[in-house]
Design a binder for these strands. Structure first.
Lengths: 105, 105
DNA sequence: CAGCAGGTACGACGGATCTCGTACCTGCGG
DNA sequence: CCGCAGGTACGAGATCCGTCGTACCTGCTG
């Protein structure tokens, strides 16, 4: 299963795309919160209370999904986002720890 | 000495700026080559043979310098760039290894 | 059923960024 | 001294990216 619904496979995750995704403060905040949460934590897009419009939230989550940082699955009404912790750790060991360690504003 | 000639001090190095700098393939290539070279290696801007004009090279090296990834010192005619390995390792342990491990094109 | 909450798609706008050419400065070599 | 190589500064053009409003779809829930 190479790519279902915009999710790249593990070996398709590219460093450039990941770094570009993490360069944005809002996206880094999402990844940071997920990285600090227990393994397997799934949250809705809106649960992060990002200070931007709905359309912009969708835009950022698409960027995270297409970079391979999160996996989004439909669950009835809404959509749950989970960090692809093992996949990222395997490709770029230590990267998530760096993001998780950043001081929150 | 907090900031001489556009070089941020160690504690001033910000993750967002570093990731933004590393999001560019050309800049990542520079950092990768420096990270793979022996500690203390100093090279001129032009020694990287980037496929862009001189002005653009200057632009990219400025980005790397202001992000805190490299240190540039005048040496007579030209300017030597050295990776701030210890500083980056201290702020974001493991990050340089990730960049260094990327497959070259 | 009617409405609302969560998300997406599309188009638009403004600002950032990558790129370049040109002009300019500074040392080193002939 | 003259030229050239290495870099920088400045301005311009093109493209990318973050942001938004609006319209729309889909399930809950009353």
């Amino acid at each position: 299963m190479p790519d279902d619904e915009g999710h790249p496979a593990v070996e398709e995750i590219e460093l450039g795309a990941v770094l570009a995704a993490l360069a944005d403060p809002l996206r880094r905040r999402v990844v940071r919160e997920l990285a600090r949460a227990p393994e397997g934590t799934a949250r809705t897009c809106s649960s992060f209370a990002l200070p931007v419009s709905k359309a912009t939230v969708t835009h950022h989550f698409r960027a995270l999904r297409e970079a391979g940082l999160i996996r989004q699955v439909d669950r009835g009404n809404s959509r749950m986002a989970r960090l692809r912790r093992a996949d990222i750790e395997r490709r770029f060991p230590g990267l998530l720890a760096i993001v998780a360690a950043e001081d929150a504003d």
